[in-house]
């Protein structure tokens, strides 16, 4: 990879200042960024490590539900969110593998917004709030397509606030090679209604399945989905499955998630 300068700020303010420099990029767990840099597909002049910023780490309950510092590793979320939001904890415990979970962070995942990542489904289905150094962004406004988010240049996610649902589950059907989600579905039932987010499937990245939400809000049972179907149009088609297959999986997984929701 190209060489760069690595800086390790200890406060958000320092990190933001560093990111203001030409060619600077944020480094969180690095589990996606480092392989990309090895391929020389990403060539920053400076990496600003966020993992040493204490105020960006940890899991706690707050006004917005469950608050998770953006630099919190998946393994920590898997453990510390287990009581308050088991579906979210389970999702975190299923990302990558144990070594990846010890480095990769929730903020890194959401900032990257890989169309096959797990966390975007949780954030979108939970109606989470993405808190940055500048503002709070509703999940519905945050995800803007494959690898695209509402984040501005130099803006960093500091915390994610998850309203805690009555019931929720995330089910992932793994792409056999990468083990990212070939399709993943997060179903969350709130007093205000059910939210369903699908990852891995669409060319536009994570999305809400409105028809399923309406049907499940009326009747939170797999049978409510029977008559629904998603179109394969606009879905990712590759070596691992057609658009139709992904659309089909989304329905199967939604049903299973409803059954599994607790």
């Amino acid at each position: 990879m190209h060489n760069f300068e690595l800086v390790k700020p200890s406060t958000i303010a320092e990190a933001v200042a560093a990111l203001g420099q030409e060619g600077a990029q944020a480094l969180s767990g690095g589990q996606t960024l480092i392989p990309t840099m090895k391929q020389r597909l990403n060539m920053p002049d400076m990496l600003v490590s966020l993992t040493g910023i204490a105020e960006m780490k940890g899991v706690c309950k707050g006004d917005g539900g469950l608050h998770i510092g953006a630099a919190t590793q998946h393994a920590v979320v898997a453990k510390e969110a287990a009581a308050a939001y088991p579906a979210l904890a389970k999702l975190a415990g299923g990302i990558g593998d144990p070594a990846v979970r010890n480095r990769g962070t929730i903020g890194g995942s959401l900032a990257n917004n890989d169309p096959s990542a797990c966390y975007p489904a949780a954030a979108l289905a939970s109606g989470a709030t993405i808190v940055t150094n500048q503002r709070s962004i509703a999940a519905d406004d945050y995800f803007q397509g494959m690898f695209a988010t509402a984040l501005e240049e130099g803006e960093i996610i500091t915390e994610i606030r998850f309203p805690i649902p009555e019931k929720a589950a995330y089910l992932k059907f793994e792409q056999p090679a990468s083990r990212f989600a070939l399709t993943g579905v997060f179903v969350a039932k709130y007093p205000s209604g059910v939210r369903v987010a699908v990852t891995g499937a669409s060319n536009d990245g994570v999305f809400r399945w409105a028809e399923a939400e309406a049907a499940l809000s009326a009747n939170f049972a797999p049978s409510a989905l029977e008559s629904l179907s998603l179109s394969g149009e606009g879905m990712i088609a590759d070596l691992h499955g057609s658009g139709d297959y992904r659309a089909h999986l989304a329905k199967v997984l939604t049903k299973r998630a409803v059954l599994a929701a607790s």
């Binding site: 690595l6 390790k8 480092i34 392989p35 990496l47 990846v100 010890n102 480095r103």
Partner: peptide
């Protein structure tokens, strides 16, 4: 904690 040492910079292990 187990990590993949090829996905971590040496400076991060300071």
């Amino acid at each position: 904690k187990q990590v993949k040492s090829c996905a971590m910079f040496a400076a991060e292990a300071d």
